[in-house]
Design a protein around this nucleic acid. Structure first.
Length: 263
DNA sequence: ATGACTACTCCCAGTAGA
């Protein structure tokens, strides 16, 4: 079973790329971020025509997340608990049935947090604390669980071309990396890092300053697996080639193949 | 380099992204 995540940077701008990628790679579940549209404007029919069930938590102009699943979604719940005042559409959780038990997938778009001397950074840190609380609670179920999405976190120096230039950035600040590490300390596994120690495993290249051509990328899109999911991890891949398509998203998909059987 | 791109918005200069 393949579970993928991709920040598409506007689903309406990227619909042709999305459909091509879905046809090419056939993920069983795809988590999308930055759909940048309200639920009613999501291009649901074109995606359903490829055999996907679609749930969205959209928002006008910014943010917005969606779950696409070839398997029936038993449940789909928007919003991360812990702050009723938070109006950003950054989280949707889905549950699918397996032959044994269920698989729970949380699709998330973690706040960027820049510039860090504004209210945006504490919002990011608070959001990460809420994600920690959510994860801690969900891990108690001892089920296959995946946190998939754009975390806006560079976990380590090997995940950015020039780490010294990023030390004060909200994506790489010590407090940011500590909160990401706290998720791993709960027992979640960074899927990519379970398979390789190699540097340069990037998922994002800025549109500016020739970042793609110079391979000045970042690894900020992640799949974190509960023990019951990581035990079934077969392989991990980054679909880097889509960054070279015409008018691409600045992010590329990353996916895991797990030995789990659908009901 | 107060930059560079891209997308969005009560339509077009300002905001946001990372």
């Amino acid at each position: 079973m393949r579970i993928a995540t991709w920040n598409v940077n506007s689903v309406r701008q990227r619909l042709d790329h999305l459909l091509t990628w879905l046809r090419d790679t056939s993920p069983d579940i795809a988590c999308l971020q930055e759909i940048k549209c309200v639920d009613e404007a999501f291009p649901r029919e074109a995606i359903e025509a490829l055999g996907y069930n679609v749930v969205t938590h959209g928002q006008k102009t910014f943010n917005g997340v969606a779950l696409l699943s070839r398997l029936p979604l038993d449940e789909a719940t928007p919003r991360l608990a812990g702050d009723p005042e938070d109006t950003h559409a950054r989280f949707i959780e889905g549950v699918v049935s397996l032959k044994r038990g269920v698989l729970r997938v949380a699709c998330l778009y973690l706040p960027n947090g820049n510039p860090p001397n504004t209210e945006k950074y504490p919002y990011k840190l608070n959001w990460m604390s809420r994600l920690f609380d959510y994860s801690k609670e969900r891990l108690q179920a001892e089920e296959p669980l995946i946190l998939a999405g754009d975390f806006n976190v560079i976990p380590a120096a090997r995940d950015v071309h020039n780490p010294e230039a990023w030390v004060d950035d909200a994506l790489f600040r010590a407090e940011t990396r500590e909160r990401f590490q706290a998720l791993l300390d709960l027992g979640l596994t960074d899927a990519l890092r379970a398979t390789t120690d190699a540097p340069g495993q990037y998922t994002f290249w800025d549109y500016q300053a020739g970042a793609w051509q110079k391979n000045h990328g970042l690894r900020i899109d992640h799949l974190l697996l509960s023990p019951q999911a990581s035990d079934r991890l077969r392989s991990v891949g980054i679909d880097k080639h889509v960054r070279a398509w015409e008018k691409p998203s600045d992010h590329v998909p990353i996916w895991v193949d797990l030995d789990l059987e659908a009901a």
